[in-house]
């Protein structure tokens, strides 16, 4: 023990900084490398700044869904229904507004409230009744998607007042507000998880619920709360996306499942290695979006994207598993 302590002290400062950066921010370095490669590889000589802006400016729910999954994963839960809850809200709002003529504010309120209801159903069945989270959330996902189809009469509904899209699409510093909402929410969740007693409670509930309980933490509330918070984030994403696009295709929600899981797990190798963390997730999400964007520019479509996300997910989980093993010894 004392030997390793001595060698650690003798480590030079630049090497320490390098090692710190390598263990925590290797994903950022990799991202920069990827951007550089893309700039070189794409024949027309794309302006790197424009490329970056295109990646960051995508109208995508992944950051919000990623936050939702980070929260449930951090407390040791597993949620397969987040994409369907998001899809439900995103579909219900245009459907209620356009097809049924509800005022938009009521449609938004109902869509968001329904997201919370799905979250509550998840939480109660899993935590209070004690049913396997995989089974419950798989079921909720299917039911939410089905009812979404019913409400939208199985078509892509559009026709929300385009002016309302400004709430997400208005550009600030050349990027849409949706991007900035994501950044703000990531910052808030990251702060809660790392700097508040609530965050510490979540950490312990996820790591060892028995210890958390003995320390006076209400494990049940933390777990149900996580499902509710997760559903609220999915609902928020649903509201934003439907307003931004003016409508939503009920089928497309499920395509977010893989990229979100890939981002969440890849995020565990960054910033706080071995733990589910929002900032790591956000870095990973943009890393993956850059990859897909690059592949599209290079002329690859369809199948490559699926392979890319699949590989990223498995590689991320493998690396994260090995990291955890190293932390333990």
């Amino acid at each position: 023990m004392s030997n390793s302590a001595v060698t650690e002290k003798r480590e030079s400062v630049p090497w320490k900084v390098t090692r710190y950066a390598l263990t925590r921010y290797s994903l950022v370095i990799l991202w920069v490398v990827m951007l550089a490669v893309l700039v070189i590889a794409i024949p027309d000589g794309v302006n790197p700044l424009i490329a970056l802006r295109a990646v960051l400016g995508q109208i995508s729910p992944i950051i919000f869904l990623g936050l939702a999954v980070v929260i449930t994963m951090a407390v040791g839960e597993f949620d397969l229904s987040f994409a369907a809850i998001f899809g439900f809200t995103a579909v219900a709002i245009p459907a209620l507004n356009v097809l049924y003529g509800w005022p938009i504010w009521l449609a938004i309120l109902t869509g968001f409230a329904m997201a919370l209801v799905w979250g509550l159903i998840n939480g109660l069945l899993i935590v209070k009744v004690g049913i396997s989270s995989v089974v419950v959330t798989l079921g909720t996902a299917s039911v939410a998607a089905g009812i979404g189809l019913l409400v939208s009469q199985e078509t892509t509904v559009s026709g929300i007042d385009p002016l309302l899209g400004a709430i997400a699409n208005t550009r600030f510093l050349e990027l849409p507000l949706l991007f900035w909402y994501g950044i703000i929410l990531v910052a808030i969740v990251a702060y809660i998880m790392s700097a508040t007693p609530l965050g510490r409670s979540m950490l312990f509930v996820g790591s060892n619920p028995a210890v958390a309980k003995l320390a006076g933490i209400s494990v049940t509330s933390v777990r149900i709360g996580a499902y509710l918070a997760s559903a609220a984030l999915c609902g928020f994403a649903g509201v934003m996306l439907s307003l931004s696009l003016g409508g939503f295709n009920p089928i497309s929600a499920a395509t977010n499942l893989m990229p979100t899981f890939a981002a969440v797990f890849l995020g565990t190798v960054a910033v706080i290695p071995g733990r589910f963390n929002p900032i790591g997730m956000a870095i990973a999400a943009y890393f993956l979006l850059t990859g897909v964007f690059g592949l599209q520019l290079l002329g690859f479509t369809g199948w490559v994207v699926q392979v890319f996300y699949g590989v990223a997910l498995v590689v991320a989980v493998t690396v994260s598993h090995l990291l955890r093993k190293r932390i333990k010894t």
Binding site: L203, F204, S207, N208, V211, L214, G274, R324, K328
Partner: peptide, 11 residues
């Protein structure tokens, strides 16, 4: 029941 062993001493 006692400690969450993968977390740090301080935590």
């Amino acid at each position: 029941l006692g400690l969450a062993t993968e977390l740090t001493v301080q935590e």
